[in-house]
Amino acid sequence: MSKVIACYKWVADETDIKVNADSTLDISKAKGKISDYDRNAIEAAVQAAGALGGTAVALTFGTPKAKQSLKDALSRGPAEACYINAEEAARADGAVTAKALAAAVKKIENVSLVVCGEGASDTYARQTAPRIGAVLDWPVITSVSSVRFDGNALIAVRRLEDCMQTVKSELPAVIAVLPEMNSAPIPGLKAVLSAGKKPVTEFKAGDLGVDFAPKTTVSALKAYAMNRKSVIFSEGEIADKVKELTAALRKEGVL
């Protein structure tokens, strides 16, 4: 049976990131989550596996902390999971990530389709899917809004700025899906309970034969400074607040 891979990333929840007084950041205490759009990618992979008569496999490349994501990912429908457990993931750039994921795809064998999210909620780089395709030298289709299959062919609708393109490709292939693809249901209790019993394969960095040296060096990370007036009318009658607001906007000359 062929396998359909869902690539998902365990990311820090951006709403938990603390900004220190000197505009440096504290990301260490942020809770983890499956990157938002990757929930749609997992659902798309589960549906594609159904259509192709194959099995869906959730695949993630993360630090030891990402272990806690496996149950969550599996509760969303994949039959098994594959986890590249490597400290190197903390410093990985697009080049390293794509090579690690592509190496795992080769190890898993008999893969007909790799599904990525359109962009991860931390990087939103939108580069991993095409890069995996390049490493494997497989066809890639990005910005996918819907797919169907016809034998060994994949027919996808892509959303571009000014048009919708329907393209056809042969399997195996890599796709990056938009969140409009499906509505990624919240897993039910039964799915959550059975997730713990599903098989997980773990790879260590050394198992993959990949060069984990990143091509980019991060030299600084700082909070984006929001410099707004933040004059908030919160007390009193609505009519007064509206009057104050209109007066302020008139003064600003934006009416």
Binding site: D93, G94, A95, A98, K99, T123, Y124, A125, R126, Q127, T128, A129, P130, R131, I132, G133, A134, V135, V140, T142, S143, R158, R159, L160, E161, K215, T216
Partner: peptide, 22 residues
């Protein structure tokens, strides 16, 4: 753009080089 980002990342993938998006 949608197609620019796609090409850029494929090129970076084939060159195995650094890429910065947007």
């Amino acid at each position: 753009t949608v197609s620019g980002r796609d090409i850029a990342a494929r090129v970076a993938g084939y060159l195995d080089c650094a890429m910065v998006s947007e």
